[in-house]
Design a binder for these strands. Structure first.
Lengths: 153, 153
DNA sequence: TCATGCATGTCAGGAGTTTGACATGCAAGA
DNA sequence: TCTTGCATGTCAAACTCCTGACATGCATGA
């Protein structure tokens, strides 16, 4: 280990664009831009789509749970829910017997809009996933997970 | 190919959290949060730090070039530059002979603040990089690059 | 020469997000 | 019992960022 690639305690490369953080940010920005443009034509924002997707898989999620799932604050998700509610894509009870969390559910229209949006998002996911060798995909998913866990801890 | 993991034209997993886009977003959000908190104590925002880092490596970059390098719009970078200029961390000529682009440069104070911020950002980068097996790091960087390129095209 | 295209810098407006704060509801322990 | 802690929902204000638009400067080709 006299040159080349030092092992565990190596400092980040001098060139910013060679650092993991920069690459991560670039990929995330590209994804955000692509989804933003595609969803705009469907009349949805990225957080709105994320919210619908989460509710489809786990109906009854509360505002706070949705916020965590979409990586935004409770306050932000609150306005997102309000918008979706006004648009008639979700329903949420005004009160509840048990606790304070208000469970949200998709409406029929919500399911339709989600299905329409899903097709374009799938296409984007395909384009992105297709850019990485298939045998490396599982490792990639795992690494991203570990990175997030290491930073959240 | 009758079950298990179909190859190239497979649809994204039903579980949102298993999709590449979700993992990417989660990791990026975690990174953003970590950097945000660490830099706040140094009196810098993430775009401001990115701007300083870019200018350190390639002095004389214009507003538009910095914007592309930091993945924001020209308008956003413009206010960032204004802030850094008011704080005395960078300098930018009011006019220029050739063309319209105004080359920015770090001041002495800018170098100092960048050096201080760099230490905490390095620590975060270490934490993140340390979470992925070393022999996979190069592939990971390449894959992220390919993903971004596939989406930008 | 001049017209068209392109990139840059900048202003104005609006949409989205965050920070800070407060009240409500439940659970666990003194 | 009650009180402390914690999570939730919500309001208000500030900030950040983006979209849309316009003027400037250079290059290219008619």
């Amino acid at each position: 280990m006299h040159d080349g690639s030092p092992s565990s305690q190596a400092a980040p490369p001098d060139d910013v664009t060679e650092r993991l953080g920069y690459r991560l940010k670039r990929a995330a920005a590209a994804l955000r831009g692509a989804m933003d443009g595609a969803l705009r034509e469907r009349g949805l924002t990225v957080p709105q789509y994320a919210c619908l997707e989460l509710l489809d898989q786990r109906p009854g999620l509360s505002n706070a749970e949705l916020a965590r799932g979409a990586f935004v604050t409770r306050q932000s998700m609150n306005v997102v829910l309000r918008g979706l509610q006004d648009a008639g894509l979700i329903t949420r009870p005004a009160t509840t017997d048990r606790g304070r969390a208000l469970p949200a559910h998709l409406t029929e229209e919500g399911h339709r809009r989600l299905a329409a949006a899903r097709s374009v998002v799938y296409a984007i996911d395909q384009r992105m996933t297709g850019a990485v060798p298939e045998r490396r995909l599982a490792d990639l998913l795992a690494d991203l997970d570990h990175m997030a866990a290491a930073l959240e801890g």
